[in-house]
Amino acid sequence: MTDFTLGDKIPWVARLYLHHALKRERTGILFDADIREPPRSMSPKWSTVWIKEGKETLCAASKVQRFPKFVDLDPGEHKLEFIVTRKGRGGTSFTKEIEFQCGQIVVVLCEPIQPNVFYRKSSEVDSWRIGIVPN
């Protein structure tokens, strides 16, 4: 997991969601996962990316659910679990406590391991970038 700044590259659709959320002064998480596997792929190695708070799933992405998601959260402290699961291959997870101020947006970008994608080499580990957008 690495932190990022607003100067880092954010996918254009996620930037659009971020712009609308900032304009409406929303508080919460903007989540985007870079899953490059085709939706009709028959590979047994596909990944699903989740963000959970306790037992509640806040948002998820897979090869068939690729668009960014915005999840509204109440201001205050939230203990979030970031999870990548791979069919038949386990996965990775970590937990992070984040204090949300009113009008604050946390941007979460994930690129899971994609071993069956050839046109752009996948990283060796699941990569997460998490950053707080100043309000």
Rank of each mutant, 00 (worst) to 15 (best):
M1D: 07
F4T: 13
L6R: 09
G7D: 14
D8K: 04
I10K: 00
I10S: 02
W12H: 14
W12C: 09
V13Q: 08
R15N: 13
R15L: 06
H19Q: 11
H20L: 14
A21W: 03
L22R: 15
K23L: 04
T27W: 12
T27E: 08
F31T: 04
D32I: 02
A33K: 01
A33D: 01
D34K: 08
I35N: 00
E37D: 05
P38K: 03
S41L: 05
M42C: 05
S43T: 15
P44R: 05
K45E: 02
W46V: 07
S47M: 06
V49F: 10
W50V: 08
W50C: 03
W50A: 01
I51D: 00
I51H: 00
K52N: 10
K52M: 13
K52L: 07
K52T: 10
E53T: 10
T57S: 07
T57W: 03
C59E: 01
S62W: 14
Q65P: 00
F67P: 02
F70A: 02
V71I: 15
V71H: 06
D72N: 13
D72H: 07
D72Y: 05
D72L: 07
L73D: 03
D74W: 04
D74M: 12
H78N: 05
L80W: 03
I83A: 02
V84D: 01
V84M: 06
G88H: 10
G88I: 10
G88V: 11
R89Y: 15
R89H: 15
G91H: 13
G91Q: 07
T92G: 13
T92Q: 09
S93F: 13
S93V: 07
F94N: 06
T95H: 04
K96Q: 15
I98M: 08
I98T: 12
E99N: 15
C102N: 13
C102D: 14
G103Y: 10
Q104A: 11
I105W: 00
V106I: 15
V108G: 03
C110I: 10
E111F: 09
P115R: 06
V117I: 15
F118C: 02
Y119H: 12
R120Q: 07
S122Y: 10
S122C: 12
S123H: 10
S123N: 08
I130L: 11
G131Y: 06
G131C: 13
G131L: 13
V133Q: 05
